[in-house]
Computed example of a mutant assay.
Amino acid sequence: MHKFMRGMAPLSVAAVIAVAAGCGQRDVVVASGSPTSPGARTEGMSPQPTITAPRARRSAYSFELQKSDWSDQDASSYNAQTELADGRRVAMFYATDKGLMEQHFDPTDGGWTRPVLLYRTKEHPCQGIELEAKAGTVAAVANWGTYCFDGEPPQESVAIVGASTLEKWDTHLTESFDGWEKFSISSDGDVVMFVNEAWKKSLRWSRSKGFS
Results as ranks from 00 to 15, higher is better:
residue 23 C to K: 09
residue 143 N to S: 15
residue 180 W to N: 01
residue 119 Y to V: 12
residue 44 G to S: 02
residue 177 F to N: 11
residue 44 G to H: 01
residue 140 A to M: 05
residue 50 T to R: 07
residue 74 D to Y: 03
residue 57 R to K: 15
residue 95 A to H: 01
residue 106 D to T: 13
residue 20 A to S: 14
residue 54 P to Q: 03
residue 12 S to N: 01
residue 167 E to D: 15
residue 177 F to W: 13
residue 178 D to W: 07
residue 118 L to V: 10
residue 170 D to W: 03
residue 87 G to H: 05
residue 196 N to G: 01
residue 63 F to E: 11
residue 34 S to E: 05
residue 175 E to D: 12
residue 162 G to Y: 03
residue 201 K to Y: 02
residue 48 Q to S: 11
residue 101 M to L: 15
residue 170 D to H: 08
residue 145 G to N: 02
residue 168 K to E: 11
residue 179 G to W: 02
residue 53 A to F: 00
residue 114 R to V: 02
residue 66 Q to R: 14
residue 31 A to K: 00
residue 28 V to A: 10
residue 82 T to P: 06
residue 68 S to A: 04
residue 169 W to A: 11
residue 161 V to Y: 10
residue 107 P to A: 14
residue 59 S to I: 05
residue 173 L to R: 07
residue 10 P to G: 11
residue 43 E to N: 02
residue 187 S to L: 04
residue 135 A to T: 09
residue 26 R to W: 05
residue 73 Q to T: 14
residue 67 K to P: 03
residue 61 Y to R: 15
residue 41 R to I: 09
residue 13 V to C: 06
residue 36 T to K: 09
residue 123 E to C: 12
residue 174 T to H: 03
residue 61 Y to P: 08
residue 128 G to K: 00
residue 160 I to F: 12
residue 17 I to L: 13
residue 81 Q to P: 04
residue 212 S to A: 15
residue 20 A to C: 10
residue 147 Y to V: 05
residue 9 A to V: 14
residue 196 N to F: 09
residue 60 A to N: 11
residue 48 Q to I: 02
residue 143 N to C: 15
residue 172 H to Q: 11
residue 82 T to E: 12
residue 90 V to D: 05
residue 57 R to T: 15
residue 2 H to Y: 08
residue 131 L to R: 05
